[in-house]
Design a protein around this nucleic acid. Structure first.
Lengths: 108, 108
DNA sequence: AACTAATATTGCAATATTGCAATATTAATA
DNA sequence: TATTAATATTGCAATATTGCAATATTAGTT
């Protein structure tokens, strides 16, 4: 208990849930949005953009990274983060598909 | 602590996070997929489709409902559930926008 | 009214998440 | 090599989530 029963679901269901879960926190949505507004990788700076302490931001970055949503390149002293398109594209395509199917079959 | 600091984020960030969080569990993704495969509202039946006990499924349905992802109409004895397009369309549009913006600005 | 079927609620144990202070690490710089 | 800047890790407290057994509710049906 407290643990998700992933074994019982398909790989795709688990993958989508994993990505969605990583985006299931406003701080992580805010990080993605911030990375989007800038025209390059961000070295440093992310901590100052968020209303959370440095260790907390670091942990959120870690979670986004482990879900495949961002990439982090070590750049000397700092670490440069940017969005990893693949995961977001996967999510985007998935829900575009759901939306398209819903448009056809109206129920209640 | 253990509580998300929603006050510090925008309404939109909180809304997107809320919907994403609701989809951040494979059982709830599975429920959405099941509702999609059928051409109508589902009365009953959902519990039998999932590898989880009835109270657990009931709770997942409740969470999907409170996030606005599904609707439930009482139909006599049973309750008929179906997808509420609005939330999914919102998420879909949001990520389509992110993807579109990412296509333009390549960084690392 | 008693019975049944479908779903919800309660209460609980196990585990996960959120957030931060303190500390560690890493690499540039003086 | 000390110092500084940027980030990560550890350890902890508070709270949330997951899952289920037991029970309640609700609406047909006999």
């Amino acid at each position: 208990m407290g643990t998700t029963k992933t074994e019982h679901f398909t790989d795709n269901q688990n993958t989508i849930a994993l990505i969605a879960k990583a985006l299931g926190h406003p701080a992580r949505v805010a990080i993605i949005e911030y990375l989007m507004t800038v025209d390059a990788c961000i070295c440093g700076d992310i901590v100052n953009e968020l209303p959370l302490a440095q260790p907390t931001v670091s942990q959120h970055l870690k979670e986004l990274k482990s879900a495949g949503l961002i990439k982090g390149n070590v750049e000397g002293n700092a670490i440069c983060y940017c969005i990893d398109e693949k995961a977001i594209e996967k999510l985007s395509a998935y829900f575009a598909n759901v939306t398209a199917k819903l448009a056809i079959k109206k129920c209640c």
